[in-house]
């Protein structure tokens, strides 16, 4: 019986791997401190759910539709944020995600507002129904591995090198003739696309979504996974995602009096987080993120 519990955790871990690696593409590799990532996740989840519930659209079409929409939004988001750096970009993107959350909560005729969307159908891909937990776990594994491979390919490609160049020194990259705006926009779009797929994957698993999913706390969580894993590599993001998904679970087994379980577990979780950051600020699998130029040109 314990297997189903563990499989559920695995499914959730796969989700966060998808979300964390895609966010790392923006933060770690392109240097874009995007705190609006969950907005893309929300767009994916709501799009495929609404299409499935209202029009019977099959999962894979709905998910791709959601992902495309998210990618477009991601691309467009580059325009206003093009000039911003560091913490300011973080705040701007955070504002963006709060606005999206506001819309989801208030546009009741579309999203049912705070009531959420129950009864989302389980996915069925080309006739193959993914309706049991073990099947969903396999589905998750395949998705996560695919995403990981795609992202690894991207970051090792010439495009990936451009992104890292932008991260390290955008001015220099521009001088060398790279269209940095286009590169940043594409990175954001790809990151959004993948996050949205994650959103659809999740929505059709729990079969119910509502705006509480896409809260600031969720952003903090995914962001922590990226940092804890270390922004220097995709593998780090996987590690961060897995660790922080599993971290609160053993705390369930610690017997606290029921009157304080909530506060106590959250406190322990927060404490562990602070300790990890304090002791190992570069993340689990990290080196210096902002490296100097690789060619040995010191600055």
């Amino acid at each position: 019986m314990i297997e189903t519990y563990l499989l559920h955790l695995f499914i959730i871990a796969c989700l966060y791997v998808i979300l964390t690696t895609s966010l790392n593409l923006a933060i770690g590799y392109t240097g874009l401190l995007n705190l609006g990532h969950i907005a893309f996740y929300a767009i994916g989840a709501y799009t495929s759910s609404l299409l499935a519930l209202n029009f019977g659209v099959p999962f894979w079409i709905g998910a791709l539709a959601g992902a495309t929409l998210a990618a477009i939004v991601g691309y467009l988001l580059s325009y206003p944020t093009i000039k911003l750096k560091g913490d300011y970009l973080a705040l701007g993107t955070l504002g963006f995600s709060i606005i999206v959350e506001s819309v989801l909560k208030n546009w009741v005729s579309l999203t049912r507002g705070p009531l959420g969307l129950p009864g989302i159908p389980k996915p069925s891909i080309f006739g193959f129904a993914i309706d049991t937990i073990p099947k969903y776990a396999l589905f998750g594994l395949i998705l996560a591995v695919l995403v990981y491979i795609v992202l690894e390919i991207v970051v090792r490609s010439p495009f990936g090198r451009v992104l890292q160049a932008i991260r390290d020194d955008e001015m220099a990259a521009k001088t060398l003739g790279k269209d940095t705006f286009n590169a940043k926009a594409k990175a954001l779009a790809l990151s959004a696309f993948i996050a949205a797929i994650g959103g659809s994957y999740y929505a059709h698993y729990v079969t119910f979504i509502d705006p509480t999913f896409f809260s600031i706390l969720e952003t903090i969580l995914i962001f922590s996974m990226v940092i804890v894993g270390g922004t220097a590599s995709m593998l780090g993001s996987v590690a961060g995602a897995v660790l922080l998904t599993l971290l609160p679970e053993p705390l369930r087994f610690l017997p606290f009096p029921s009157s304080i379980i909530g506060g106590m577990r959250q406190a322990l979780y927060a404490l562990l987080l602070v300790l990890v950051i304090r002791w190992r600020p570069q993340g689990l699998i990290g080196e210096n993120t902002f490296k100097k130029f690789k060619n040995g040109v010191k600055r």
Binding site: I27, F223, A270, L273, V274, P281, T289
Partner: peptide, 12 residues
Amino acid sequence: DKNLALLLASFG
């Protein structure tokens, strides 16, 4: 790489 670490520590 303190900016990210500090932000996260402050959240924590």
